[in-house]
Amino acid sequence: MTVQFTIDGLEVKAKEGEHLLDVARRHGIDIPSLCHHEAVEPIGACRVCLVEVRSGQKTTITTSCNFLVEDGIEVHTDTAEVRKHRAMNLELLLARAPKSDVVRKLASASGVTRTRFEPLAYEPLPNCILCELCVRTCDMLGHHALTTVGRGDKKRIGLPFNKPSDNCVGCASCLSVCPTQCISVKDTPTQRAIWGQKHDFILCKVCGAPVITKKHRDFAISEKGLPEDYYDTCEKCKQSAASKRFASVVW
């Protein structure tokens, strides 16, 4: 079923069951957010993507990432209330992630250039804003290596018992999705160090460049079923091999 409503005066249509943030972005309306990623379910953690929703007599401030669109609502993305509360939440986040460029940029766009709170970073993930994108992604990928530990002010991101996990394949997606890029991934020509363990790379059979971690390839083979030799050459060598092959066929 289709629903129709307005965002900042613009008439928009969406499917029932869609989330407001996705619909707004599709229509080119920018709502800042930190914990949202289309590949995983929204949880409304960062509280930055605030909007004001008017429905009948009721006006509420709400996060747009996990708000299911409704027919006839009136959405405002830039009211004084929205700005005020977004600024406060960003000020809280700035104290957690003072060195994160993304947080600093969003905060300063909301007029927050310093925080009145003491730094709140925690080891070994300074700048972590506890948005759980890494955990949600790790689960979505089927690895289940990472988890959210504890609750309340003791909530952390980590591994069970703080010990390296057999389930981690070293894909580093956790870093890719991390809004503050606070996860440590260190690559050498032969190994990747991540979450307290080292993963061996498969090295390109032609040039020896790293392709993918062995464990990640094994996981992909068992889950996705492509043959092993798909993964044994680096991107560049594959490309030149393909070019040569094509050249020999065409000419």
């Binding site: 986040l93 003491e118 506890l130 309340g152 002010d153």
Partner: peptide, 21 residues
């Protein structure tokens, strides 16, 4: 409440901690 917060929302988790401070 800062201890009992699930820790999901910035406003509740960090906000209550700051309020406590």
């Amino acid at each position: 409440l800062k201890f009992e917060s699930c820790g999901n929302c910035t406003s509740c988790r960090d906000g209550l901690q700051r309020l406590y401070e």
